[in-house]
């Protein structure tokens, strides 16, 4: 895999999102990686509305197979999404199932005017008709490979990507 320059990708995403700011969008990051990226984009774009975060554990479609992780984070949407424009942020778009779950959860808070999706990495392997509106980098990976965003415990919270071999 070619090395992804996360900082450059984030800067490109911020510029692409800028024209949307007139509509005073609400940014929502999906736990955990998406929330880190949303934090960065929120700051770079100096959004006026507070950042929201979403933990989709209670909306997963594989609950009966995997159960729930007791370390569920709390979803926190400080601004009412009713009739607002939402920018949903995640680290990796893969099967599309996480995004489906996230949209189901958002709609339980209210009916947004629109939802746009911004992801750092759009990879292959979609299982649902879901595509991102803003993409940092597009990747093609082996089926058994999983890509994960990490955040270092340094003062900058440096972001990096790691590729894991499933089952290995």
């Amino acid at each position: 895999m070619a090395a992804v320059d996360i900082e450059a990708a984030l800067a490109r995403m911020a510029e692409a999102l800028r024209p949307r700011l007139a509509a005073r969008p609400i940014m929502i990051g999906i736990h955990t990686g998406g929330a880190w990226l949303a934090e960065r984009l929120h700051k770079a774009l100096a959004l006026s509305e507070p950042l929201g975060t979403l933990d989709i554990s209670f909306y997963r479609d594989d609950f009966t197979r995997l159960g729930i992780n007791p370390q569920v984070k709390t979803s926190n949407l400080p601004v009412n999404v009713e009739d607002r424009h939402v920018i949903l942020v995640d680290d990796v778009l893969h099967t599309g199932r996480t995004i489906r779950a996230a949209m189901n959860e958002i709609f339980d808070y209210g009916r947004p005017a629109s939802v746009a999706l911004a992801v750092l990495i759009a990879r292959d392997g979609r299982e649902l008709p879901i595509q991102a509106d803003f993409v940092g980098e597009t990747l093609t990976l082996d089926k058994h490979q999983h890509i994960k965003l990490m955040r270092a415990h340094d003062p900058h919270g440096t972001l990096s990507l790691s590729i894991q071999e499933a089952g290995g």
């Binding site: 933990d55 554990s57 209670f58 909306y59 609950f63 729930i68 007791p70 370390q71 569920v72 984070k73 709390t74 979803s75 926190n76 949407l77 189901n104 959860e105 339980d108 808070y109 209210g110």
Partner: peptide, 24 residues
């Protein structure tokens, strides 16, 4: 016991929103 308490914590937040229902 701690897992149950931690999981309950996130359901408390859910009880405070408009639609108090998840599809689990």
């Amino acid at each position: 016991i701690l897992d149950i308490l931690d999981t309950a914590e996130s359901f408390i937040a859910m009880g405070e929103r408009e639609i108090k229902k998840v599809p689990l």
